[in-house]
Amino acid sequence: MEYCFIKPINRTYKYVSVRGNIFQRNVTKIKMNFSISKRVNGYRPFLYNITVDSCRFLRNTSSHPTAEFFYNILKSHSNLNHTCPYDHDVIIDKLPIGYINHQLTHVLPFPEGEYLVETYWFAYDIRRAYVGFYGTIS
């Protein structure tokens, strides 16, 4: 990971930026495991723990509705908008926290609380990266 941060611009506007370097070019076999945990006497599994073959999913995003919902949150602010092979770094640039909050409270109403979103990225069935986000919905 080159960088992964949340930048506060003012009291109401914050954004997330992530850049993950791909060292081997033309990656054609990618899987992603995505899970959400809620803090209740420690972090406990909450709603989702899914594994998606990313190359297959990006060919037909409607094949997995849960993954499609979360992909649509990222799609407009990232370069994850094409199928394999990936021959460039993965970038999520200036994804507004307010937009994420709207999607997770109005579109798919999550209850208030503290959450952990974990993603594990696999290339050729070998775990290559872990990205975890801690957040609060209030």
Results as ranks from 00 to 15, higher is better:
3 Y>N: 07
5 F>V: 02
7 K>G: 01
8 P>L: 02
8 P>S: 12
8 P>Q: 09
12 T>E: 14
13 Y>Q: 10
16 V>H: 02
18 V>G: 01
19 R>I: 01
19 R>Y: 03
20 G>L: 13
24 Q>F: 10
28 T>I: 06
30 I>Q: 07
31 K>M: 07
32 M>K: 07
32 M>V: 15
32 M>D: 00
34 F>W: 10
41 N>G: 13
46 F>N: 06
46 F>V: 06
46 F>D: 07
48 Y>T: 08
50 I>Y: 01
51 T>A: 05
51 T>S: 14
53 D>N: 15
56 R>W: 05
57 F>P: 00
58 L>I: 06
61 T>A: 08
64 H>Q: 08
69 F>R: 04
74 L>T: 11
78 S>V: 07
78 S>M: 08
80 L>S: 04
80 L>N: 07
83 T>M: 05
89 D>A: 08
90 V>E: 01
92 I>W: 05
93 D>H: 15
96 P>D: 08
97 I>Y: 12
98 G>H: 06
100 I>E: 05
101 N>D: 13
103 Q>R: 14
103 Q>H: 04
104 L>A: 09
104 L>K: 04
105 T>P: 05
106 H>L: 08
108 L>P: 01
109 P>Q: 08
111 P>C: 08
113 G>L: 11
113 G>T: 11
117 V>Y: 14
118 E>I: 04
119 T>H: 03
120 Y>C: 00
122 F>M: 09
124 Y>R: 13
125 D>E: 14
128 R>V: 05
129 A>H: 05
130 Y>H: 12
131 V>T: 09
132 G>L: 07
132 G>M: 09
132 G>D: 06
134 Y>M: 01
135 G>I: 06
138 S>N: 13
